[in-house]
Amino acid sequence: MEKLTSRERQVYQQIVKNPYVSQQTLSEALQLSRSTVANIISGLVQKNVLLGRAYVLNKSRQVLCIGGANVDRKLHTHEPLQMYTSNPVYSRSSAGGVARNIAENLGRLGFHPSLITAAGMDADWDIIEKASGSFMNLDGVLHLPHATTGTYTALMNPHGELLTALADMEVFEAILPPLVMKSETKMRQSECMIADLNCPKETLELLLRMSRSFSVPLVFVTVSAPKMKRLPKDLRGLTWLMTNIEETEAHFHMSIDSKEKWCLAAGLWLEMGIEKVTITSGKDGVVAGEIEGGIHHFPSFSTGDVNDVTGAGDAFCSGVLYGWMEGMELREVMKTGMMNAVKCIQSPYTVRQDLTPSLLTQDVEELV
């Protein structure tokens, strides 16, 4: 699905509520001339959002996720960590990876994600495939017989907070432009493309060109400070950048030690031609900015009992994208993202297993 203008989205949302609504009713409800409404509807048909008279909706809601899919292994210490000796732990393994996690979140929220990634042909891939197949299309996975599937091993303290992590992500260097171009048709049909910075730089540059060419929104999700160097220099036209304070500090070679500098950093991203940006900082919340709506700080919610922080950032990104694609205003978008992250933290899973659109909406409404 191509990117919609604000007026197109308004008309689309009215038609979602009532597919048999007349153009006159739409004109009165939106305070637009009937000819304007007719032109907007014609545009929605051309963009394949509407499939014809009686306003049959194209509800496939495809999204394309490109990047990491790996096995998360989480080791929890029973006592405070002691260096240079053996520490008793209990462990859990599950499917993970930024792009894969976002795809599963969005799949549970009613979208139809397709995943492009690279993996080995091993037992770890079997774990990922079993956990992912119900929520995303895996036809875009490149299997390399002599490679090992990506792994992320996190060491957590007794409170579920990250102490350190080890990432074996070499296989993702194979997510190159020829692999991505095999999914060109899906790019054109997607409501949104989402890529994490496990992708090589040339792949991210290609996606930016395709986004501009196909008028499909593109989201970059950062994964670590060292991989910030993969960001293309020219980010003009990027719809969303989702990053955190540490990664932003690394990119701009600056120290962010106040809310003023935090907001300043968001402004620096926007000055690069990005339409919308989020910079998270754990318990301190998030600064979000958009070219038209300004820059705002949103405090975090109380997390209650922390079970496991792994996957919280991906849950936040997924909630934000869900709210945005549902047409919410920025404040509601941020609330939705932060609530999804809180519920993820309270869960022992990388992606909360009870996630549905209605439950997420209920969670957000209970904040009021």
Rank of each mutant, 00 (worst) to 15 (best):
E2I: 12
R9W: 10
R9C: 00
Y12R: 01
P19W: 06
V21E: 08
Q23G: 09
L26C: 08
S27I: 01
L30M: 11
L30E: 06
T36I: 06
A38I: 03
V45S: 05
N48K: 15
L50H: 08
L50F: 11
G52M: 13
R53K: 10
A54E: 15
L57T: 10
K59C: 09
V63I: 15
C65D: 02
I66S: 04
G67R: 01
A69S: 15
R73L: 15
H78C: 04
M83P: 00
Y84R: 13
S86M: 05
S93A: 14
N101Q: 06
G107T: 07
L109P: 12
H112W: 01
S114I: 04
A119T: 15
D124P: 06
D126T: 09
I128W: 07
E129N: 11
K130R: 15
S132K: 00
M136Y: 02
M136Q: 08
N137R: 06
G140H: 09
V141L: 07
H146C: 05
T149Y: 09
T149C: 02
G150C: 05
T151M: 06
M156N: 12
H159A: 11
E161G: 09
M169W: 00
A174K: 12
L176R: 15
L179V: 10
M181C: 03
S190W: 05
M193G: 01
I194R: 02
N198G: 05
C199H: 05
K201D: 01
T203Y: 13
L206E: 03
L208R: 06
F214V: 00
V216Q: 03
T222C: 09
S224H: 09
K229A: 15
K233N: 14
L235K: 08
L235W: 07
G237E: 07
I245S: 03
E246Q: 06
T248K: 02
K261I: 01
C263R: 14
C263P: 00
W269Y: 13
E271C: 11
S281M: 14
K283C: 03
A288S: 13
G289M: 05
F298P: 04
F301K: 01
N307I: 11
A312M: 04
A315E: 07
C317V: 14
M328P: 00
Q353W: 02
T356V: 12
P357L: 02
S358H: 08
L359Y: 03
T361Y: 02
D363Y: 08
